[in-house]
Design a protein around this nucleic acid. Structure first.
Lengths: 117, 117
DNA sequence: TATCTATGCATAGTTAATCTAGGTATTAAT
DNA sequence: ATTAATACCTAGATTAACTATGCATAGATA
């Protein structure tokens, strides 16, 4: 990770659902995709992604199916469900709220008075 | 919190340092200030803020001093140090990187192919 | 004057998201 | 044949923020 990894907390699910909202993918592919799209900023660990996928599937946000590439290796693809799509929309709104709130504080002006010893 | 509290992780320190970069403040004041500036999105708990302040002080990012309001109650003010200011600049850059990377994924286009069963 | 609310600092223990570190197996390249 | 990349998985450790307290002062209100 190029950034403080704690920053990522709370953002992983929206990143995963965003990817799957555009196309079904398998886990390993998502790791590469996220790294590529983020310009190398996010490098998901397998120990991070796979438990998230399993949890999202258990909650009905995504569905999985095995698919082989013309007789070659089997890959476990995930696609987003209607419920997951609804959840994604909520999280997109949440992200906008969060980002805006942080920026307000980073760029904000002083409200209360100034006091020093 | 109006947003998933996990989103906040990794962002607390930059928020605190940003406030102190504009004026010294005491803890309770910072809680109110952050709530006000964020439009009510962030409501820091005391159990969140005070340990952060103590940790930042232990690391030389901020300094504290007690100050009374004309003979009234004593308040513990914090001001940012040079080291803290340097840290803040790094974290501002980190925030930009992070925010931009998330937005790239949320709005990004498909890179690999599309596959379904 | 008694009580309630807001202010103000502090911390021990809990929770939960991510990482570490390991495992297994297939495929492609050297 | 060996190595690197691909591809899945999970138990346990880490750690940041929260919960739930405690204590104390100041101001308002009845």
């Amino acid at each position: 990770m190029k950034v403080n990894k704690e920053l990522l907390k709370g953002s992983t699910v929206i990143l995963v659902l965003s990817l799957l909202d555009r196309a079904p993918m398998y886990g390993y592919q998502m790791i590469k995709e996220i790294e590529k799209k983020s310009g190398g900023v996010f490098k998901f660990k397998e120990g991070t992604l796979y438990p998230i996928l399993h949890s999202l599937e258990a909650n009905g946000m995504i569905e999985s199916y095995w698919l082989g590439n013309e007789g070659s290796r089997q890959r476990k693809y995930y696609r987003i469900t209607d419920k997951g799509n609804h959840c994604l929309k909520e999280k997109q709104q949440e992200w906008e709220t969060f980002r805006s709130a942080v920026d307000k504080i980073l760029t904000g002006r002083l409200i209360y008075g100034y006091k020093t010893e």
